[in-house]
Design a protein around this nucleic acid. Structure first.
Lengths: 192, 192
DNA sequence: GCAAATTAATGATTTATTCAAG
DNA sequence: CTTGAATAAATCATTAATTTGC
């Protein structure tokens, strides 16, 4: 079967990996010469043209932003919800009878959430959420019960919730680590 | 409406970011105490339970593996294909100055010879039949077709010293990533 | 198990917006 | 104020992944 020339570029896994690595490395809108070089390199792994590289970065960047925006929106909605009925969602295990009259949660630290996407503010709310997908299929809650057990059995160590072990710099011991970016994106999007 | 509390955990952007960072950092199957810590930290940003953390890592790991597997499969298939046309691709990429596989059949005759202006023959033939009413008469053309021009013209000017620039460790050098100074398409189209 | 039907992902185009020069 | 370059947003279109009925 003579491979039916696909109408559109279909990146090989290596190409994809390299592109993603570059993206993580900070590349967002490569200029012409960069595109040329990237294309040259990637062509080693399969057919590719400059426009493919260009489009890939365009799309990837755009969809990254989109994802962020969605998250923000969802967050806002969530906070709304939470302000209204935080307790509702509280635990079910014990003391199920508690009147929901506590104060709203105070984890509204969203001020800290740097709104680096400050160009997001205008009218692009048109129909980003036209697709309300995200159902994600069946959760297959295999062993939802084990939680108690697990968290409970382990206590040899965790029963001591006391120390604020450094959590964020956490890393698994020796696994290969890729880039370390202190910020989501070392190069913020153009602040216009 | 009544803002029904979602039955399932819906991570906030911060939570997601932190989890992803941890995952990138190598965490795959946190143990109970790790989960506890992570949960404690993340609960700062919104409601979350230990099982959410657990499931998240489970799922993320699984989907990562799945993605890899698929890429590998596709890669194998593609490599088969490639072996048949490797040469072809090499040449293509080397030439690098090649019209994209456009098939610009008919309207070449139109200005083939007389067009001594610096106009480039845009072949905006994409889907003429789709939107007839629009401005097909005056294709204002974005740069969708400029690829040839761009890749062709630039080298004369923006070609940097041609050592084999190493491309893979590429990172956006500290410079703002936007390269606003050097425009992506710095070269005029007057190559004819 | 399987292929048709459906859905999600993403490559490719087109349209709208921004910003700087003139 | 207009125009053109550059880019972001929106959209179209095709491929892949999943679901579904057999």
């Amino acid at each position: 079967m003579p491979q039916v020339a696909s109408t559109r570029w279909c990146p090989t896994p290596e190409q994809l990996m390299i592109l993603e690595e570059m993206y993580r490395g900070g590349i967002r809108t490569p200029n012409a010469s960069q595109i040329q070089q990237i294309t040259a390199h990637l062509s080693f792994y399969g057919r590719i043209e400059g426009k493919n590289v260009f489009y890939w970065f365009q799309n990837h960047k755009a969809r990254d932003r989109q994802k962020l925006r969605r998250r923000l929106i969802r967050q806002q909605q969530q906070q709304q919800n939470q302000q209204q009925q935080t307790q509702q969602q509280m635990e079910d295990s014990a003391a199920a009878i508690r009147l929901p009259n506590e104060n709203p949660p105070q984890f509204l630290h969203q001020g800290a959430l740097e709104d680096t996407t400050n160009q997001v503010n205008f009218t692009c709310q048109t129909n980003i959420w036209k697709k309300e997908g995200m159902e994600m299929g069946n959760p297959a809650m295999a062993y939802g019960q084990d939680w108690v057990v697990m968290m409970d059995v382990c206590p040899t160590k965790c029963c001591r919730p006391l120390k604020t072990l450094e959590l964020f710099p956490i890393k698994s011991t020796g696994l290969k680590e890729e880039f370390k970016s202190s910020k989501p994106f070392p190069c913020s999007t153009s602040t216009n």
